[in-house]
Simulated scan of single mutants.
Amino acid sequence: MPSPTQRALARVPDRLRPFLVRHRRLVKFLLVGSGCFALTTVIDFELKLTVLAGKPVVALTIATVIGTVVSYVLNRRWAFRADGRPREVLMFVLVSAVAIAVNDLPLVASRYLLDLREPYTSPFRQEVADFLSGMVVGTFVAMLFRYWAMRRWVFVPLAGPALAAAVPQEPGHAAPELPRDVP
Rank of each mutant, 00 (worst) to 15 (best):
R180E: 13
L158F: 14
P56L: 01
R77Q: 15
T121E: 04
V137H: 01
Q6P: 02
D83G: 08
V137R: 00
R24K: 02
F19A: 12
R15A: 14
D181I: 00
R25S: 09
M1Q: 11
L74P: 06
A101Y: 08
V65F: 09
T64K: 03
R152W: 03
L114F: 15
E177R: 12
L31E: 03
L49N: 13
E118P: 06
L20A: 06
D115P: 01
D44A: 08
K28V: 00
D14V: 07
R146Q: 15
L90A: 03
M143S: 14
A97T: 09
V137W: 04
A8P: 02
D181S: 04
G172I: 09
V108R: 10
A8H: 01
A174P: 03
S34P: 05
K28F: 04
V69W: 09
R180C: 01
V21I: 07
E127P: 00
T50F: 03
R111P: 07
G138S: 07
R111N: 13
A53Y: 08
L90W: 09
V156M: 03
E170D: 12
P4V: 07
F145S: 11
V141C: 13
D83N: 10
R17I: 06
P123I: 00
V102L: 11
M143E: 12
D14E: 13
L47K: 00
T121N: 03
R180Y: 00
Q6C: 00
L30N: 06
F19S: 04
I100L: 02
P4I: 05
I62A: 07
P2N: 14
L105T: 15
V65Y: 02
A97P: 00
R76N: 03
A162L: 08
A59Y: 10
L16H: 07
L30R: 07
L26Q: 13
G172E: 10
A149M: 04
F19K: 00
Q169N: 12
T139S: 15
L20Q: 11
V167T: 11
L30F: 02
A99Y: 14
R77Y: 10
G67R: 01
E46Q: 09
S3R: 06
E127V: 01
L90V: 10
R85F: 03
L107Q: 02
D14C: 01
G33F: 09
V136S: 05
I62D: 05
V21A: 07
R76W: 03
L144H: 02
L178V: 06
F45S: 01
E177D: 08
L158V: 12
R22V: 11
V141L: 13
A164Q: 10
D115H: 15
E88D: 08
L113F: 12
P171A: 09
P56F: 08
A162M: 05
W78R: 06
L163C: 00
I66L: 09
R22E: 15
R152V: 02
L158H: 14
T50H: 10
L107H: 04
R85Y: 05
M91Y: 14
G160R: 08
